[in-house]
């Protein structure tokens, strides 16, 4: 691979890295696991990059590769198995926004999301990223109708998890 390609890739990745961090945040529950998944997604993106034609946005392309890696390709490495359950520490909101009930609610929400299965997490992720049903259906490989139905089910499930 030539240097120019590498350079342009790293530049794009650096600018859009938040997408990968968000995927990692949903699918892992420790610092090590986060870094591990980030690394794997970066490798997969880099390998696929020569085929990236630029006819879709780099970020859109990243969503797909990132989720595919998290859902399908990624193997949890051994050191992550013993980590503690997610406790919401990473998601503390900043002091200026501090609102006790809101913070509490968010903490519970993130906890509930971590109880969802991989596919449900993917749906929540795409919902949070404001993707339309067309893109959701194309990313997961299901029909738009089914994406919609499932999304509603996930929302209901989250509600149930929050108010048992």
């Amino acid at each position: 691979m030539n240097k120019e390609l590498e350079h342009s890739f790293v530049e794009l990745l650096e600018k859009n890295q938040n997408i990968i961090h968000k995927v990692c945040r949903l699918y892992t529950n420790s610092y090590d696991a986060h870094n591990d998944l980030f690394q794997e997604i970066t490798i997969q993106l880099w390998r696929a990059y020569p085929k990236f034609r630029g006819d879709s946005k780099f970020s859109t392309w990243m969503y797909r590769v990132g989720l595919n890696t998290a859902i399908t390709l990624y193997r949890k490495s051994k050191r992550n198995i013993t980590t503690q359950d997610f406790d919401g520490v990473e998601f503390k909101i900043k002091a200026e926004d501090y609102d006790d009930t809101e913070e509490q609610q968010l903490k519970l929400l993130y906890k509930a999301i971590h109880k969802l299965n991989d596919i449900e997490k993917a749906l929540v992720f795409l919902y949070l990223e404001d993707k339309d049903y067309k893109e959701i259906s194309e990313t997961l490989g299901i029909s738009q109708v089914n994406a919609r139905v499932k999304m509603n089910r996930v929302k209901t499930k989250l509600k149930t998890l929050l108010n048992p």
């Binding site: 590498e6 890739f9 970066t42 880099w46 390709l73």
Partner: peptide, 13 residues
């Protein structure tokens, strides 16, 4: 990020 590109993948594929 640069060093990450040259690490080995551990994907199931």
């Amino acid at each position: 990020i640069y060093p990450m590109l040259h690490k080995k993948s551990s994907s199931i594929v």
